[in-house]
Design a binder for these strands. Sequence first.
DNA 1: TATTGTTATACTCTATAACTATA
DNA 2: TATAGTTATAGAGTATAACAATA
Lengths: 156, 156
Amino acid sequence: MAKPAQTVDATSIPIPAGEGVLEDLIGYALRRAQLKLFQNLIARLSSYDLRPAQFSALAIIDQNPGLMQADLARALAIEPPQVVPLLNKLEERTLAVRVRSKPDKRSYGIYLSKPGEALLKELKKIACESDREATAQLNEEERELLLKLLTKIYKE
Amino acid sequence: MAKPAQTVDATSIPIPAGEGVLEDLIGYALRRAQLKLFQNLIARLSSYDLRPAQFSALAIIDQNPGLMQADLARALAIEPPQVVPLLNKLEERTLAVRVRSKPDKRSYGIYLSKPGEALLKELKKIACESDREATAQLNEEERELLLKLLTKIYKE
DNA sequence: TATTGTTATACTCTATAACTATA
DNA sequence: TATAGTTATAGAGTATAACAATA
């Protein structure tokens, strides 16, 4: 008559993660940290009715005026069909514009409008503040080091 | 007659990200790096027909045998309703079991089965290999440092 | 025939409200 | 009435195939 399982006292598991393999995986720590930063940014951008991807799009367009949608898709690490509603939204709000390319009438050049540039300038501050706040446990030196290590990983 | 926009040469934008605000944001680097690690792990787990969250669940159950579903939800940083199909899948494959709690018949204690424990042991190796491969740009010292910095961020 | 952007579609992830069965 | 688990549902995010216009 082997005793089947017994339920443990729930109060003994404040946050059950405990210590194990997961805590030694960079991928796991990366996901938890990324989630935290992302949620902070989402909350701050919500008053502008913008998502992080839309902010990133504005920043990329600003740095690469006239780029094509396929380029924007690659830069955002998303598929071309996902660019359509994203750009539609930015265009509806007159933050960006699609301009038919003269040499190749299939494609568009994408540009920021003046209000788009102005808003981006404001959003940059918001994003930097968010970044700081969500990494307040680190000092300046640690922050720069972390950025260097992360960049090394994702830039092949 | 201000010249309207001109399309830039697409070949001049290999990967349009360029350099700007985004590159200075830890949140952005975090997202790119996390995406890379996640995709590597997803690919490696696909032959087991498992998702990263299911692997994490197995690891958490292993470390906290008998925990309740609400605890598992908190540990995975997901909502209780999302635990249901996840656990159903693990139970269908007899990797984990729900055991009715005697003192409180509303709740279950969750446990790994023997095969679940065996599989987890194998998955741990897979996950560690994946972690290494996707961070091959870093040496051992950098890897430990990165893990320390990330843990500092997500553990409040 | 190939390419740019688009539509349609589907699958996952995530979040919330409402239900059941116990307490 | 409150709680654990569940159901139903809806919204994002993501990915693929197929189409129109253009090359």
